[in-house]
Write a protein that binds this DNA or RNA. Structure first.
Ligand SMILES: [Zn+2]
Ligand SMILES: [Zn+2]
Ligand SMILES: [Zn+2]
Ligand SMILES: [Zn+2]
Lengths: 137, 137
DNA sequence: ATTGACTCTATAGTTACTATAGACTTTAAA
DNA sequence: TTTAAAGTCTATAGTAACTATAGAGTCAAT
């Protein structure tokens, strides 16, 4: 079964442009083209794209996915590289969660300092933002 | 007290390029220039930049900050706009935290499926990633 | 043969910077 | 006063992972 890019897009849920982008980025290259230069894909390509999509849903970067794909393609390499990447990625995600949680606290405190019916002249939010400035300064 | 961009950078902790960038983006324009066209700043500019920096630390976008600054400059406008912006921002942050928390769970499960001393041929991580694909398909 | 849907490449835009290059200005020492 | 170092200027390109065009060519059905 051989399909063109539009159908691959439908099957995979990726956009046509995204698939072309992965081609340019060497993640999923169409090995064959039609006479008129249309990209042609087979079952293996579908699976590879779904693999990529799943990895993206885990927020892995294209560079990381490229590495996973190449490890996947050479079965005798060791697990360590895969492991290390996933671990670093986990750390990064956890750091980001911690940052955002902190941020969320500050934003909520800020939100509480305003009760909507004033002019901004007396707005607690802007007052707080301005005060933070004069403290730093 | 009038200073040039390099000193403003030192005082504020922003880079020189960042300050130039804020100039281009109309967040902090140097109202006067030296004879040789160097940007010149005063105390009010320092405070404005610190305000911007504080807002950025809350992850507000430059567009949002531009809006805050303009509200700040017209004291008779109402608080509602400020409030709504902050609330939307909070929602967005909370959504992102929820996403990342979910992600973190998946990544940890993935990590547990490998014990490092195998070749990737038998790697649980890659196996799982590949299985996820054939399920979707 | 013609039409409409599809695909092609190349290019620009998104966000908030960062990093150059090449030219000009300022400041301080010689 | 000349000169050299340090600072600054604009303009441009790069970052990540797409998204959205434009303009041209291809394919499938009538
Ligand atoms: Zn990562
Ligand atoms: Zn208010
Ligand atoms: Zn926001
Ligand atoms: Zn493994």
């Amino acid at each position: 079964m051989i399909i063109k890019i539009g159908e691959l897009a439908k099957i995979s849920g990726c956009s046509v442009q995204t698939i072309r982008h992965y081609d340019k980025e060497q993640l999923l290259s169409a090995k064959i083209r039609s006479d008129g230069n249309f990209r042609l894909y087979d079952q293996a390509d579908i699976e590879r794209l779904l693999f990529i999509k799943h990895c993206r849903s885990l927020d892995l970067s294209l560079a990381e996915i490229r590495q996973l794909l190449s490890l996947n393609d050479s079965p005798m390499s060791q697990c360590d590289d895969v492991n290390q990447m996933i671990e670093q990625h986990i750390e990064q995600v956890e750091r980001r969660i911690a940052d955002l949680t902190q941020l969320n606290k500050q934003l909520k405190a800020l939100r509480l300092s305003c009760n909507s019916k004033r002019t901004v002249e007396h707005c607690g939010i802007l007052k707080q933002l301005n005060e933070a400035v004069s403290q730093t300064n």
